[in-house]
Structure formats: structure tokens, C-alpha cells
Simulated assay, not measured.
Amino acid sequence: MKLTKHHLTLKLREPFTIARGSITHQKSLVVQLEHDGISGFGEVTENPYYGHTIASMEESLSKIEPLLEEYISQPPEDLWQQFRERLDGDLFALSAFDMAAHDYFARTKQLPTWKRWGLTWENVPVSSYTIGIDSIPKMIEKLNQQQGWGIYKIKLGTDRDLEIMKALRQETDAVFRVDANCGWGPQETVDNSMLLKDLGVEYIEQPLPADASVTDQEFVFENSALPVIADESCQVEEDVRRCEGRFHGINVKICKCGGLTPALSMLKSAREIGLKTMVGCMIESSIGISGAAQLLPLLDYADLDGSCLIESDPAVGVSVSQGVVNLVDGNGSGGGLKSKPQLSAS
């Protein structure tokens, strides 16, 4: 089996700002696994907040080259733990590899990835569109440029959060979701939840810092007027059980948990204990979105607008049109590159 690593630089339509900072470009690493003319693709983005660069992830991937032949005939889920140990905890690199492996294996079985998992494509949720932090007039402009979406996720964590939400509510009757990206305190969250509920907000994502105390998490869980969804507080499979009684749901990020294999397990575990399920994305191409979209039958909420936020998508695959996720005819996850960008082959 051949492993090829493609480097992408994704230019955003607009500067994208959250409580932790702002970017205009996003670097991305695409992993391609190929054998006997069949290719599978996976993607992961560089992320300074979590300490992962393109160079560090490529170095990690070099450690698994001796094991590549095992993926020719064995399902990815049977090998994931072995590869996790070999990568010494680099779950970002593993996530791209695992996504590519699921795509490749489903193609060899001549099935869409979701169907190989035994899922049924019905009653899947639509995606939200994300409005990053900016001046209020600019946030209104961003929203009005993307008319027709039924759900907007609004990034907050400023000193004018409620003012932002009141202004945006005057522009649309769509559903709002709020992501504070660890920017609020416990009492602030509870107070805001009551006002946000009246503004048509559906839930609040990760209001408290990831290292917030159990006491603070439980206080918000018990007193918030809106459901609270864990993101930074639920990164890996071991975190799911800890969210019970502290959050109403979890947002699974493929890159953080290490791929589609653990994502499947996390979503199923969350449903077993009564947590709402969501899959989010980074700013990424259609390759990453195509992989994540295979999980839609297991979700209550979806945030898969990453490729909609970039100026020019270098990939093809699953598309998201005003929230509706459109699958690609064919097998695997459906993602692929339009052309060959800068790459290194193993």
C-alpha cells in the first residue's frame, strides 16, 4: 500500500475569528492510501491550539509505514488501537489516516462508508453555517450573504455577546446555535442562557473552559435554560462518560478523537447514556467533510460547513447546500482531490 501526503493551504472567504484568535488561511494535510488502483482519502488541519503542525503530523505518519500492508485486507477498526500506540498519541495524524482507511476499505467492498457500518440514511440532520466573531455590522453582513440556511452557529466570547445576538435576530427567523469557545464563566453562562433562549437559541456549545471544575460544570448543567454541548471537554472516547451529568450532549471532532473509528464508538456510547450527539468540523476541504458526513445517521446536530467557509475548494466530495448534505454517488466516503498539490510520498 502506498501512502501519499498532500499539502493544502485553504484561503478563507473572510477572516474567521473565535474567542481564541483569528485566521485568514488554514493549512491542511490530506492522506491518500492507494493499492491496486483504489484510493482512500482523509484530511486533518494544522492546529496550533492543540500543538499539531503539518511537519509534526507528517513525522508521526512516518512511524506507521511498516504497518501499511495490514490495511490492504483488514478493517480499519480492527487496527486502530495498534496504530494509536505506534503514533504515540498523535490523534490528529491518526485521524486523517483512519479516515482514509475507512474510505479505502469501503471502496474495496463497493459500498458507501456509512452503509458498510450498517447505518441507514434517513432523518439525517441538516448542517449549521458558522458566523465568526467580528464587528456587529460585519457579522450581519456575513449572515445576509448566506441567506437560506435554516440554522446559524454564532461564535461568541466577547464583551458584547448579547448585543450581537439581538442584532442578528433582527435579520432572520432561522434557528441560532451559540459557541462560546470556552469564553464564559459559570454564572455568566446561566444568565446568558435565559436571555439567549428568548432569542431563539437552540443550545450553547462549550461555554466554560476545558479545565473548568466539575462543580462549575454541574452548576451550569443544572441551571442553564438551554442544553449545553461539550466540545473541548469531550475530545476522546474516555471523555464521553465523564460528560454524563455535566453536559446535555457532545460534539465529536474527528481530528481530536483520532478518526472515524473512535468517533463511531463515542457517538454510540453517548446515545446509550442519553446524551445528544453532534459532529463538528474544522475549516477544511470537501475531503474532511465527506468523511465526517458518513456519521450523519448517528447525529442529532451537525456542523459540517467547513468547506463552505473557504474561497476555493481544492477537493470534490460531499457538498453542503444551505445546510442540506448531498452525498456523492459511488463507494467510500466520496472525497478526492481535483488536482495534485504539493505532496510527499511514502
Rank of each mutant, 00 (worst) to 15 (best):
D98G: 04
W114I: 00
R84D: 08
G148N: 01
D134M: 02
T108D: 08
E70F: 14
L298K: 14
S307K: 13
S265L: 05
I250T: 03
P262G: 06
S269W: 10
L196P: 07
P227S: 08
L337T: 12
D303I: 14
A96P: 11
D216R: 05
M99D: 02
L67H: 15
P314L: 09
P48Y: 15
I151L: 06
F219Y: 15
E14L: 06
D313Q: 12
E202N: 05
Q322K: 15
H102C: 02
Q32H: 11
D90N: 15
K109P: 05
L67S: 13
D231G: 02
A225I: 12
P186S: 02
M194G: 02
C257Q: 05
P262I: 08
T45K: 05
T277K: 08
E65A: 11
E188H: 12
P262V: 04
L199A: 00
V318L: 03
K153C: 04
G258R: 09
G21K: 15
K276T: 11
A106L: 07
E70L: 15
S321I: 09
Q342A: 11
I151A: 01
K155F: 03
T108Q: 12
K153Q: 07
P125I: 00
L264P: 00
D313H: 13
I140H: 07
G42N: 05
K276E: 09
L168A: 04
